[in-house]
Structure formats: structure tokens, C-alpha cells
Design a protein around this nucleic acid. Sequence first.
DNA 1: AATGAATGAGGCTTCATTCAT
DNA 2: CATGAATGAAGCCTCATTCAT
Lengths: 208, 208, 208, 208
Amino acid sequence: MAQQIENGLDRRTQILDAAMVCFAERGFHQASMHDISAEAGISVGLIYRYFENKEAVISAMADRHKEEIHKVLERARQAPSLLESLEILFTAHCCENEPRVTSAFVVDLYAEAARNPGIADLVRDVLQTAMDGVTDLIARSPEAKNAAHGLAPSEQAELIFAVARGMLMRDVLQPRELTAAERRARQLEVTRRLWRLLFKPETEPAYA
Amino acid sequence: MAQQIENGLDRRTQILDAAMVCFAERGFHQASMHDISAEAGISVGLIYRYFENKEAVISAMADRHKEEIHKVLERARQAPSLLESLEILFTAHCCENEPRVTSAFVVDLYAEAARNPGIADLVRDVLQTAMDGVTDLIARSPEAKNAAHGLAPSEQAELIFAVARGMLMRDVLQPRELTAAERRARQLEVTRRLWRLLFKPETEPAYA
Amino acid sequence: MAQQIENGLDRRTQILDAAMVCFAERGFHQASMHDISAEAGISVGLIYRYFENKEAVISAMADRHKEEIHKVLERARQAPSLLESLEILFTAHCCENEPRVTSAFVVDLYAEAARNPGIADLVRDVLQTAMDGVTDLIARSPEAKNAAHGLAPSEQAELIFAVARGMLMRDVLQPRELTAAERRARQLEVTRRLWRLLFKPETEPAYA
Amino acid sequence: MAQQIENGLDRRTQILDAAMVCFAERGFHQASMHDISAEAGISVGLIYRYFENKEAVISAMADRHKEEIHKVLERARQAPSLLESLEILFTAHCCENEPRVTSAFVVDLYAEAARNPGIADLVRDVLQTAMDGVTDLIARSPEAKNAAHGLAPSEQAELIFAVARGMLMRDVLQPRELTAAERRARQLEVTRRLWRLLFKPETEPAYA
DNA sequence: AATGAATGAGGCTTCATTCAT
DNA sequence: CATGAATGAAGCCTCATTCAT
């Protein structure tokens, strides 16, 4: 029984992994169930044993995205400094071999959210949770204390997430050839600039 | 003859307007040619007199988007202050009756760019032009002179556009009921915070 | 009035000439009315002033084919010898710049006849008239007198027309590059062999 | 597995059989995929599991035609006399319940060859192979020895095939009501006349 | 007389989904 | 549990035909 569930979970994972690749390559609605089954190396019919229909696959992908964001948030929470927390948030998708896949998926997820209320609710929820987490992180952080800008932690979190989303959108425009390392470097640059803007004590510039 | 061209342009515009509505409602690939023709109040076949195929409609929409961004940029350039320039950039889509339509369209455009190199090139080009314009605006602006963060104008522009894109993504998550005015207010808030962060002399908050 | 009819006839001819080119290039049903109008250098609507519909264009083409066959038959009748009559029959379509056009058209005409009873009747009628004419020619010909094969003139005519049709079919297989002259030469060879078979007194071979 | 291939072949055959009927009835391009699926008693979509597209169905039909011609040629080769070989060649299509179907199909095939180079190549190849075979048959045949006409075997073969093709064209003009037996009788008459012309020693008629 | 914009039915093809094996 | 053949609705696109100008 446990074995069955285990297998079931494996299968679902296998299918979702394949779906992620297909969705990133062609988009939710351009990827066919047959594409997914081929990528997963199984038959079309088998997908329907684990998912009610294509919509359900998309929902499950969204759910998995939610879990992954939660994991990233957890890691960010445990980072020793705010800068490192931000670095984790901004480069999470670069851990994968193919960061582009994740970027494209997330942009598609928002596109889907624009017209699928269920997805919109989920994404909004993920976003809110993540923002709450980061708001909290900022509120507790000593680095954020001496900031001169007078923005509330939640306002800072909002800006941080806007930049993070915006960078994901930018990522899908990058040429396919760009490696994960290069994408990561790009993200880190921007992260640090944002951090400097929000949290760096304005000492040096003052001397300038 | 001039009349014909005029008519031709009108038809194209009419079709693209309808396509914009459909694309925003259902996405590029979920919107059918029949949807577009119905929205435009014409027959399906007529679309093909003005566009080679659906792909061409999407391309033309992307082109039109490019032109609109250029117009917005021009308006931003002529604003009396940097803050007002940013306000124009961040709220351009709220001038329409249906800002959601524009937001959804742009997110879809990026999703399409992720897999359609032609669209990717165009979007990248639009983005670069816009960023160059804003970089220039910052470099010339007195407000940007006394900034304490030490970021180069192009780096500031990059952050600004990241936030702008990120806010568009956020906009598609907002409930449909949100009015244009409310969306605009939301955008302005964030714009001003960003502006304060980048360009406000860090005096007052210190007293607060 | 006469002028109008004249113009009308000219227009019809112009349209049918264009249709012949299109039909030969793409087939009756693959050629669109727009193709024909473009080839004729007129508007689509104008075709409908002279022909009720596409079917009527095809019928008119078949009629014109009938008239042309009659003309060829007339020329054949006036030839000084049976051999020359046959040569006229077998090479009539090579007088045009593009014999292939005629060959392809005739093959298509028979294909159409296979399923369009009206066309079938017309083609059958043309064929019968032509065969009757040639039967008559043979019956009157001195060359046919000393034939050793014992075939009736009508039987000989039937064979002659079978070969003529068969050669048309072969012609459409020839590479496009083959010139009218080359096609003509090919036809003449076969014509002469057929003639030798049917009408040559069997003297020389006997000596051989 | 063998079963699968078997089924696959059966389906292809079933589809091609249906296509043959439809093509003969309406022509390659007038017959719709829906017509074919209905004739085959299956759904439209299923055709696409066995053929890439309509073009591929036409090509496969042409291929099958090639194979059938080869089989006929083989039978002709094994006939005890040249006359019987010719009879097989000229009446092969009359073995079917519906000779008209085959005749119409072949005429359409040539019509298609006139504008589809791939089909033209195939048909030309079939024709050449068949003519080579018959040339060979004639060269080996004792009946052909004492022919008085002085035509080379290949020239005789060329005439034979011209007549055969021409008779097929004629066949499509015959009223639909004509039975297979009647068509066969007609073909045999002409075959024998042709044979007499080419191969009969010219003795008896001389006495007549 | 002539144009060509406009229509909409119909053709080809794809694809989510089902079900017998 | 797994397969993949089968279905049929729906999408893109073409084209014969009409009609206002």
C-alpha cells in the first residue's frame, strides 16, 4: 500500500517533470498530452490514471511550484544575512540545469493566472505567503534597521518581489545559449544592487 | 486609393483591437480566429485579407506594442521631472479602460517570446530602446545627482524596468473587479517608493 | 451591339486562355477563380459576368476543346496523304508554345469526365466525331487499300485514337524542360511507326 | 507485436481501399478526408495515425499501384503466349468488381503526375519497368520473329503501352452501367487487333 | 463594365480524452 | 498497472461566390 502510494508519487513526479519540460518549451496549451507522455517515456493513457485531465496537470504543476517556493523561502529564512536571503530568492531557479525552463514556466503560470481564476488564486496565495515571509525577515533584520528610505518592511518586500518577477521575465528574453552560471551571475548583480539600495548604510557615498 | 489604404489600415486596426481583447481574455493560442472575427464583428475569412495567418496577427500586435512603448517613452521624456517620467512609464497601461487587458497581453507576449525567437528579438529590442531612453533621462536629471546609492544610471534603469515588468505581472493577479483608477493608484504608490529609494535626498526620513 | 458581343467574346477568350494555363498548372479543382483572374489580369468578379460559375468555365473549356479538335480534324482531312493526316492529329498540341499545357489539360478533362456526366458526354461526342472522321479518311484512302491486317477502317481508327490518347498521357510524364520541338519529334516517330504498321505495304521487310 | 504490424497493415489497406473508391468517384482533390474515413467506416482522426497527411495517402496509393503493376507484369511474363501476355496486361483492371474505379484512378494519377514531380517520377518509373519487361517478352517471343513491320521490340512495347493507356482513358468515358465483363470484352477485342497487327504472320488476310 | 472587399461553408489537421486489451 | 488505437470536436485556413461602389 505504502509502496503503491510511493509509486503513485513517483509517477506523478515523473509526469510533472516531463510536463515542466514541455510546458517550458511550448507553453501550457501548446504542449500536448502526447508531448508530455513522450517526454516522460510512458503512454498517454497512463497520464490519465494520475491526473484527471490536462487542467489537473497544470494545477498540479502550480501546486508543486507553490511547494518549491515554500522550500526556497525556508532556505532564505535560514540564511545568515539578509543579503544572502535575497540571493537565495533571486537565484533559486538557477540551481536547475536549465533556469530558462523555470523562468518560462513561471511567466506562463502568470499568463494562465490572468484567465484562470483557480490558478490566479493559487499564485496570489503563493506570492502573499512569500511576501509575508520576506516582510518578516526584513522586520527582524538588523541590516534593515539603519535604512534611510523610510519604507515599511512590507513595502520593501513588495519592491523586492516586483524586481524578482521582473527579472524572471527578463530571463526568458535571454538567448538560449546563456548558461545557468551566467544567468545566476546576472541575477546576483541585480540582487546586490537592490540590496545596497534598500539596506546598505549610506556611509561611503556620503564621503564621496 | 488613399481611401483604400485608409480602409486597409482601419481594418487592420479593427482586427488588432479585437485580437487584443481576445488575446488578453484567453491568451494568444487559446483565442481562436473565430473569436477574433466575432469580437471584430467581421467574418473569419476577412482577417486573412489583412493578415497572412494567426502568427502574423500576433506579430503585428507585438509591433503595435513596440510603437506604443515608443510613444509612452516619448511622453516620459517630455515630463518636467523624473518622478513624473516614472509615473508615466508605470501607469501607461492604466489610461486604457481595461488596464488588465494590457497587462495580460504583455505577460503573454513574454511567454510567447520564451519560445518564439522572432517575438523575443522584438521584445528585447523594445526593452533595450526603452531602457536606453530611461538611462539617458536619469543621466540628465538633476534629481539623480545627489543620490547616495552609487548606482550607474543604466543600473538604475535596469531596476526600474524590472520593477515595472514585475508590477505588470502582479496586475494580472488582481481581481477582475479592480478598476483602472484603483490599479493606477497601486502603481503610483510603488512608483513613488521606487523613486524615493533611487532619487530622494535621504534627509527627512532620518528625522522621522 | 456587335462591338459588345465582340468584346464579350474577347473577354471569354481571355478568361479561357488564362483558365487553360491555370488548369494545366494546377488542375481544374486546384486552380482557384482568383488564380484565373490574376492570370487574366482582371478581377475575380469579372469572371462571373461572363461565366455563371467555375463549373461553367470548365464546361466552356471543354467546348472550346471540342471546337479545336474539329479544326484539327478539318486540317487532317485536307492533308494530301493519310500519313500527313495522322501527323497532324498526333502533333496538333505541339503547335502551341507549351504542348504540356494541352496534354495536362486533356488528361484532366478525361479525369473530370470520369465523374462529371456532362463532360463525359461532351468528350465522348468529340471522340466519336473524330473517330468517324478518321474512319472515313481511312476508308477513302488508297494507302489503306493494300493493308494486309484485315482490320476494318473503324477498328483502325480506334487503334489510332487509343495511341493518340496514350501518347498524351505519356507527354505529361515528360520532364518540364522538354521543348515543343522535342515533344513533336517524339510524337512523329510514334506516328510513323503506327502508320507503317497499319498502312505500309509489306514489301521491303520481306526482302530483308 | 506481429499482430500490431498486421493490424497496422490491415488499417492502411482498409484506408487505401476506401481512398481508392473515393478517389475514383471524386478525384484526388475532390475527395475529402471525411469521405475516405466514412467509406472506410472509421473516424477522420484515425487516418492520421497511419498517414501523415492526404498527400501521403495519395503517394501510398501510387506506391500500391506500382506494386500491382509489378504483379500484373509478373503474371504476363508467365503466360504461355505473347497474346495471352497482352490480354493480361490489357484486362488486369477488369478483374476487379469495378474496373471503372481503376481506370478513373489511373487517369487521375497521370493528371496528378502532370503537376506533382514526386508522383511523376514514380509513374515514369513504373511505366519504364513495365515497358522494359514487355520489350523483353517480345524479344524472346517466337511469335514476334516473323513480324513483317521491322519495328524493334522496344518500339512495339511503346505502341502497346500507348494503346493500353489510351484504352484506360476511353474506359472512363463508358457509361457507368457497363459491366466488368463488357469492359473486359471490349479490351480483349482491341488487344487481339493490336496483336494481329504486330505479331500475326500476314498470310491468311492476303488470301482473303 | 469592372473592382475587390466581404462572406461563410467546408476542407485538412490536431489533440484531449476514452477504453478494450 | 499500462498501452495506444480510436474518436470527434474544434481550430486554421481557403475559396467560390456575391454585391456595393
